[in-house]
């Protein structure tokens, strides 16, 4: 096929697609939305009407169902890896092994850098939190459907765009830091963590705000029908990927920084006493020096006076 023919083929292809798209937009009857835009957005924040039944036990926000789905997916993946992949690990890693090792190494490095003294359990925690936030955020792209209690179909959102999920994650992380502080530093650790009392609030609402705003913008963009073509490739995938990465990174980084802060070695009493004594000795030495200098000055003046 010549170059000219190729170009013509492409042009015809795109013109056809454009013509059909325009036809769809112009000829279709205006879509009747089940909810108005303000209702959609209000519900995305408050979850007043769109509830999903949790095994018939309780009506919950769709975010919780998403959270369980994410756990199921990630858990299944982990178990499959444990059974089929990890036993076949080699000294020189293959591609998939390299991905897993890089992932684990990344979180271990983050934990070690920010909390050099104690980081065993911290790295495991931020690994789990990072994976949960990342996969949870990407989960909304899969568009799993759930049926709400009032019979409507809903696409499952990111678990952390639900305020309850975000609070659980933020407060859970704070609790983890608190426990780490107590375990590593006792009372000092406890006080160190309590000092950062605004941390659970800020972490919870940072997650909630970031993910919810993403969901709202997406909701806003998709609401008019003609924007539902082509655009989601960029808005949906790229933005979701970006804030999934950013949020996972921010929360894990914050947790490791604060954990490192509350678990760092506090100077014990003997050390403090030693330092105090050293300071005292230094001060005394400085005083003595001053006195000697003064004496010398006085002597000098006396000799000069006498010689006069």
């Amino acid at each position: 096929m010549s170059k000219k023919k190729k170009i013509t083929g492409f042009i015809v292809f795109f013109v056809l697609i454009a013509a059909v798209t325009i036809g769809i937009v112009l000829l279709g009857k205006p879509r009747e939305h089940a909810e108005t835009l303000s209702e959609v957005m209000r519900d995305a924040v408050l979850h007043e009407t769109m509830k999903v039944s949790l095994f018939g036990l309780k009506d919950v926000n769709p975010g919780l169902i998403s959270a369980y789905c994410v756990t199921a997916i990630v858990g299944l993946f982990a178990i499959i890896c444990r059974i089929f992949v990890i036993p076949r690990f080699k000294e020189i890693p293959g591609k998939f092994q390299l991905v897993l090792e890089t992932l684990v190494g990344l979180f271990r490095g983050l934990a070690k850098d920010n909390s050099p003294r104690k980081n065993g359990i911290l790295s495991a925690y931020i690994f789990a939190a990072g994976v949960y936030i990342f996969v949870g955020t990407m989960f909304e792209l899969l568009g799993f459907q759930a049926v709400t209690t009032n019979g409507a179909s809903i696409s499952l959102p990111a678990p952390l765009s639900d305020i309850n999920g975000a609070i659980a994650m933020g407060c859970g992380s704070y609790l983890f830091i608190l426990l780490g502080g107590i375990a590593n530093n006792g009372f000092h650790g406890l006080m160190g963590t309590i000092k950062e009392f605004s941390l659970p609030l800020s972490m919870s609402f940072r997650l909630f705000g970031a993910l919810l705003s993403g969901a709202l913008v997406t909701e806003l963009v998709y609401y008019p029908m003609f924007l539902s073509f082509g655009l989601p490739v960029i808005v949906g995938v790229l933005f979701t990927l970006l804030h999934a990465l950013i949020q996972a990174y921010v929360l894990t980084l914050l947790v490791s920084i604060f954990y490192g802060e509350v678990s760092e070695e506090k100077l014990d009493k003997v050390e403090k006493k030693k330092r105090k004594q050293q300071k005292k000795a230094e001060k005394l030495a400085a005083k003595n020096k001053n006195i000697e200098e003064n004496n010398e000055n006085i002597n000098n003046t006396i000799t000069s006076e006498v010689s006069k």
Binding site: T71, A78, C81, V104, A124, F127, A128
Partner: peptide, 15 residues
Amino acid sequence: NFIILFGILYFFLYK
């Protein structure tokens, strides 16, 4: 849910 996920990830993947 998160604690379960943490447990699974820790024992089956991370460790």
